[in-house]
Design a protein around this nucleic acid. Structure first.
Lengths: 147, 147
DNA sequence: CTATTAATCCCCACTTTTCCCCACTCATCT
DNA sequence: AGATGAGTGGGGAAAAGTGGGGATTAATAG
């Protein structure tokens, strides 16, 4: 399980260090490979092999010709990249993905249970602030869901 | 499985480089051959031998006299072309197919699970932007489907 | 049927990008 | 203060992508 928020910098070549705490599960369970893609949020998400497979299973179980599903599939697949850690524990993030998530220089690498999220700091801070403002509504929604 | 979005250029002779990451499955599983055709989207789709067979099987299993199926079959078959990779890993795309997908110069070569899609960049970007705008609805739909 | 043109294929050559390795800095712990 | 390990930066070899010449084949027109 991935936890915590780490600030690392993406260098001029597009490389990003993965926090040491995240490396062991990646190396042991996932052959040093992560699958990086975007989802519907303005950030990147990195998955280990087994978590990536689980995600694909889920996607494949959805109705094939549903328009929303089709578009979601396209987004996920078209942006997905297999990244392997180099000797220093970094991954190379392709230009297009960096652009999409607005990454350049300082970057947040954030553990989110089964996946690692990669955020532009300003975007993250904004999203966080919005979540705090919306706390009452979030609580209500959680209550509805039985929490 | 094909993943990612690569920008390559179609040269004056109509040749298009296939990304290195896609070449191994094509060479190993498919004798260096892909079947290129059009589908219902304004782009081209390239299949390996086995995936092409699977597609044809599926099509053959559909009701023969249904009008939509008839038209779909005509589209797929009439435009299908067998293309083999040259020594540099490129395929030659016939004029008619290029015209259909509006291809000329910069081109996106995009992995979509079992097939490779070939897009005019502006068309793709528009489709993608539309999908991102629809993100909240897509998310809602996915939630309904249990994701 | 032949002449001319166009299209295709097979090379080779150049440019750009990527990948791999090494080195440096900074913080932490002993 | 020294050792260790994390994070960062950069140089150089190798590979990927692109462009073009010329031979061969196919298509078209006269």
């Amino acid at each position: 399980m991935f936890l915590g928020n780490f600030t690392h910098t993406i260098d001029s070549k597009g490389r990003l260090s993965i926090p040491v705490k995240f490396r062991e599960p990646i190396n042991v369970d996932s052959k040093g490979i992560v699958y990086v893609t975007t989802e519907l949020d303005p950030c990147l998400a990195a998955y280990t092999l087994s978590e990536w497979d689980r995600l694909l299973e889920k996607i494949k179980s959805l109705p094939l010709m549903n328009q929303g599903v089709k578009e979601y599939r396209r987004l996920i697949y078209s942006r997905a990249t297999e990244c392997s850690l180099d000797k220093q524990g970094r991954i190379l993030i392709p230009q297009k993905l960096r652009d999409h998530a607005g990454l350049d220089g300082d970057t947040y690498v954030i553990g989110n249970d089964n996946k690692i999220e990669i955020w532009n700091p300003e975007r993250w801070d904004k999203a966080e602030a919005r979540a705090m403002e919306a706390a009452p509504e979030i609580q209500e929604e959680l209550a509805k869901l039985g929490m």
